[in-house]
Each structure stands twice: as structure tokens, then as C-alpha cells.
Design a protein around this nucleic acid. Structure first.
Length: 459
RNA sequence: UCCCCAGUAGCUCAGUUGGCAGAGCGAGUGGCUGUUAACCACUUUGUCCGCGGUUCAAAUCCGUGCUGGGGAGCCA
């Protein structure tokens, strides 16, 4: 007989004569002649109640079972006479797989997120983090399903790159050079390094995705990216996952349509498949989460240009710490005002001044702005950043010259504009930020299994 | 990297004017009960973050370092 996952038992329509479950004890309530044990196996938020009576041969052993211990229970699934649960298991046999000693760090009470971060290897055993990581898993599946249903191909972009072309902040260096030799020589001799040149961990798969969009049409990359920025905030980690679709024959408007459909589909998927886990976040993390999710799924997202956004901010009468100025990037407080107070829903901001955006974004006819788009959402700020790409070789090269970028390093990228270039567009979505949005979790470290931040690489 | 706040028992915290180190929870023991973060009784627990200074006396005041949190910048 095979063991059954607890989520299946709890959804059972009928009582069952014999079942086997395996899991860990969440709480235990003893009486003289029997014990109630809540068993959780991670298959769902809820635990199942097991009743073990003194008639069991090893009852004196069962009495010593503690929170965190692992059990294999054989028994009958019966309707529970007690309140609080429909089903429970009357145990016919309890095999003690292992007993957790009394210094098991997870107590039968709520712990702070800060404390649980210090035991990140154990925190998925808590209700909150178990729920968060089940949702994370389900969202990963939803992404691949969404793109497969739309006929996109998944591209595995390289994690180690030879160029820092994306220009998105500090990169982690990848080297096989011996630090002792480097110290002796007083420099890094990249010619002797593994790749014969400087190498880094990727900050974006976009340029790779553009190449494949010119071949497979619609593609996406979804994988880890790395930033060596010394940023200490609740919204940044050094290693995070980014989703980057790239679409041939696509302009800025279609890019936004796609982004809106993506966020709505992912959110709806999580709502449908993780209802219990989301309910925990609504109850304990953010009482307004239900409304946030409804807005994400049902509202049409606002779409305004950067210039219009600046106008709204200037006319708002709101006092900002930093002045609103056309030509500079928006501050966090500006983004939050637009999404949270003015529109009260996600808002696309388009056509930014070219000076504050990267070289690859398509120049608009006004010569001043580029076809960029950011999706700003309440509480998080920028969830998505993207653009229509510059497909015209002469315009792209001129822009690279203006910005002082070495064209020879980008020969392969420029080839895509030489041979059969087409209008195309794409964006990047920070996966962890999406998870923060749908769970209400306010610290990005709590949606990453083992977060990497400056000075921290435990576990 | 900058600004602000915090660090006291395993966890969450209190500690008044500088004057004997405290509570709740957890854990342990016993009891009781179809219990629901069970309940009742008893027991247990300290490098007051580290270092240096002021003082008769420092958890408390000063300096400094470390760690954590919030915000900013940068960004996703």
C-alpha cells in the first residue's frame, strides 16, 4: 500500500478503510489514554489530525514524540467528531521515523520573519513560508504554461557572459585564476583566465533572447540573474530570477498588451491553484490582499506617457521629498504615488527621455524619447521594465557612438540588425517582485528560498 | 554607500532617576480532558551584542565596532 498525500485525504469525498501518510508533527495534544497529533507533509497548508490511542503497541514511545518529529501513520480516514476539521485519521499503527529533540527551533507559536531568516533551512516547515514557496513553485509552472499556450519557445540564456553590454549595474566576476597569483602579479591576467577574457554572471538574458526572437519568433528566458550592487533594501537581492519575453514583429503597444495579459494570467492561476495558501496571507500578512488581487485581475491597467506622468505629479499638489522634474528618472515616491494614490492600480509609463534609458531602446520620431515602458504597481514600484528595441542599424550604431559603447564587442548583436532585422519588443519582470505583489510579503528575502544579499551567503 | 531605529533567557519583549536580572511563550515533570496555538500546577533558563571609557556603582551614560530592521540611492 502506498502513502497518500494529505491534500488528497483532506479532499476525500468518503471515509477510507486504510490509508498511509508520512509527515512531520506540527503540534501534539496528549491525554492519559490517547494523543492528538497534527501531521503536515507539505502537500498543502493544512495538517491532518491523527488520533493514537493507548491500545497501540508502542504507545509509550508515541507519548515521547515531539513537535518536528517524523512519522508514518497507518489508519482509517473517518469523519471527525470534533470541531475544526472534517476528516481525521484513527491510527492503527504509528511508526516513528525520527524524533526531533526538544531544542527544535520552531516552536508552537509565531516567530518573526527576522528570526526565521536566521534558520532559512527550517523556515519552509512553517505555515507562512511553506505557503510562500508553494505559491512560488506554482507561479513558475504558470509562467511556462502561459508561454507554451501562446506558442512561445523557452530559451536558456547563458548564466556566464563575456560582455557587460546590458549595463545594468555592477556584475559578479567569474574567474578561475588563483587569488594568490593575482596578488603576486598585482593584477588579473585575463588572457590566462579560463575564458581568455573577462567573464561575469549575467545581469539579463535580453540580448540572447533578441537573437532567438529573430529565429524562433516569440521566445522567453526565465532564470537566475545577478547584481553585485551594494543595495540593502527590502526589494533587492544579489541573485534573483527574471522572466524576459522577446517578440519579433511586435511594437510597444503589443508589448504592453502582452505584459498585462501575463500579470493577469499568472495572478489568476495562483488564485485558482493556491487558494488556501493565499488565504493565509490575507489573514496574517495583508488584510487587503484580496482587493489587490481583484484589481490585478479585473482592472484595465492605466497607460500614460512619461510626460503625462510628470504632469500628473506636478499638478498633484503633493509635497515630495525629491522635486518632480521632466528629464530625470522618477523617484520611488513618485512611482508609488502614481500607482497607489493616483491610479490605484497598475500603470504603464511609456516613452521616457532617451538619456535615462539604455542604448537598445527604439528612438521615437520626436528625437527626444525612446519607446520604453515600465509597469508600476502598488506597494512594489517597478515590476516590469521593457521597450520596443531599436531595429534600425544606423540609428542603433549612432546611439552607441553617442554613449561611447565599443561596437566591436557587440558585433553579433548588430548582426541581427544587418540580416533580416524586424521590429521587435520585450521586457523583463522580476519574478520575486511578482511574488511579493501576490502574497503581500514585504521583504524580498522572504520569497527567495535562500536569499543572497551583501555580506550574506549562508545556507 | 548614505540617513534613522534596534540588539536583555531557546523565542517575543519589559526593565522608571545609574542602585539585587524580570514577564509571557517555549521546554521539562506531574495532572486532567474528543483536544484545536488545549487546559491546570510545579520546575528550568542569562557573556544584558563585542571592545573601551565615565562612575563608589552601568542592561541603563559616552565612544567605537559588529549584527538585524526601516527608508534612500541603484534597479528587477
Amino acid at each position: 500500500m502506498e502513502r497518500v498525500k494529505i491534500n488528497r485525504l483532506l479532499g476525500s469525498e468518503t471515509a477510507l478503510e486504510q490509508v498511509i501518510i508520512k509527515g512531520w508533527v506540527r503540534t501534539k495534544r496528549d491525554s492519559k489514554t490517547f494523543s492528538f497529533m497534527e501531521i503536515n507533509d507539505g502537500s498543502c497548508l493544512k495538517s491532518i489530525q491523527v488520533i493514537a490511542g493507548e491500545e497501540l503497541a508502542n504507545y509509550n514511545e508515541i507519548e515521547k514524540v515531539t513537535t518536528g518529529s517524523a512519522l508514518c501513520v497507518t489508519g482509517r480516514l473517518v469523519e471527525s467528531p470534533g470541531k475544526g476539521q472534517r476528516w481525521e485519521i484513527q491510527a492503527d499503527g504509528v511508526e516513528i521515523i525520527s524524533v526531533a529533540p526538544e531544542n527544535y527551533p520552531l516552536q508552537k507559536k509565531r516567530h518573526t520573519d527576522e528570526y526565521l531568516r536566521t534558520i532559512a533551512h527550517l523556515r519552509p516547515r512553517t505555515n507562512k513560508f511553506g505557503a510562500a514557496f508553494r505559491i512560488r513553485s506554482e507561479a513558475i509552472y504558470a509562467i511556462h504554461k502561459f508561454y507554451r499556450d501562446k506558442g512561445f519557445r523557452c530559451l536558456s540564456a547563458p548564466v556566464i557572459t563575456g560582455s557587460d553590454c546590458e549595463g545594468a549595474g555592477e556584475m559578479f566576476r567569474v574567474t578561475s585564476l588563483d587569488p594568490a597569483d593575482v596578488a603576486k602579479q598585482g593584477r588579473m591576467n585575463f588572457k590566462e583566465d579560463f575564458f581568455g577574457t573577462q567573464a561575469n554572471l549575467t545581469v539579463s538574458g535580453q540580448l540572447s533572447a533578441e537573437m532567438f526572437a529573430m529565429a524562433l519568433g516569440d521566445v522567453y528566458t526565465f532564470g537566475p540573474t545577478f547584481r553585485a550592487e551594494d543595495s540593502n533594501t527590502s526589494r533587492h537581492v544579489a541573485e534573483f530570477w527574471m522572466l524576459e519575453p522577446e517578440m519579433a514583429f511586435c511594437d510597444l503597444d503589443a508589448n504592453m498588451d502582452h505584459a498585462e495579459e501575463l500579470v493577469k494570467t499568472l495572478t489568476r492561476h495562483v488564485m485558482e491553484h493556491c487558494a488556501d495558501d493565499l488565504a493565509l496571507f490575507t489573514q496574517f500578512v495583508d488584510k487587503k490582499l484580496g482587493g489587490v488581487l481583484d484589481t490585478l485581475v479585473n482592472e484595465d491597467y492605466a497607460r500614460v506617457t512619461y510626460d503625462e506622468g510628470i504632469e500628473i505629479l506636478l499638478k498633484s499638489g503633493k509635497k515630495f521629498e525629491f522635486p518632480v522634474e521632466n528629464g530625470t528618472d522618477l523617484q520611488s515616491e513618485h512611482e508609488r504615488f502614481l500607482a497607489e494614490e493616483h491610479f490605484k492600480k497598475p500603470v504603464f509609463l511609456t516613452n521616457y527621455p532617451k538619456e535615462i534609458k539604455p542604448f537598445y531602446m527604439r528612438q521615437n520620431d520626436d528625437g527626444r524619447t525612446v519607446a520604453a515602458v515600465d509597469l508600476l504597481v502598488p506597494r512594489i514600484g517597478e515590476l516590469i521594465g521593457g521597450s520596443q528595441r531599436e531595429e534600425r542599424l544606423d540609428v542603433l550604431e549612432a546611439r552607441m557612438d553617442e554613449m561611447g559603447l565599443p561596437k566591436e564587442d557587440y558585433w553579433w548583436y548588430l548582426d541581427s540588425r544587418r540580416f533580416g532585422t524586424v521590429p521587435h519588443a520585450g521586457f523583463g519582470m522580476g519574478f520575486e517582485r511578482f511574488l511579493m505583489l501576490v502574497t503581500g510579503i514585504t521583504n524580498i528575502r522572504d520569497v527567495v528560498p535562500f536569499p543572497r544579499t551583501p555580506g550574506k551567503i549562508d545556507f
